[in-house]
């Protein structure tokens, strides 16, 4: 049962990664694309981590997965901000590069 829930969570996480990638490809400008990457991929990773933690069950693995998810969320938000800031400062003409 737990294995089933774990696999369902990993499947749901994959869907968010796909949606994030679709957003990256379809959204019109860099800022909207960043929304897709920071938010959808962040939740995708959290769901896959949760599912993997359920499947593994060892305390060390769970702690590692939690740390990785926390750092990924932190660096994702920070990198998104830095990329957006750089694009703004670089000027409007190459903002959509």
């Amino acid at each position: 049962m737990i294995a089933l829930i774990g696999m369902a969570l990993i499947g749901a996480g994959t869907l968010f990664f796909i949606a994030g990638t679709v957003g990256l490809l379809r959204f019109p400008d860099l800022y909207c694309q960043l929304h897709a990457l920071t938010k959808a991929d962040g939740l995708g990773l959290a769901l896959i981590g949760l599912g993997a933690a359920l499947l593994s069950g060892s305390v060390g693995d769970i702690a590692r997965i939690a740390l990785i998810c926390a750092f990924a969320a932190l660096s994702g938000a920070t990198c998104g901000h830095l990329i957006a800031r750089h694009a703004r400062r670089a000027g409007q003409e190459d903002a959509d590069a």
């Binding site: 897709a36 938010k39 939740l43 995708g44």
Partner: peptide, 12 residues
């Protein structure tokens, strides 16, 4: 954060 991810995914 879940709301945000669902929102942007549905838009995408």
């Amino acid at each position: 954060a879940v709301r945000g991810a669902v929102d942007v995914s549905l838009r995408a």
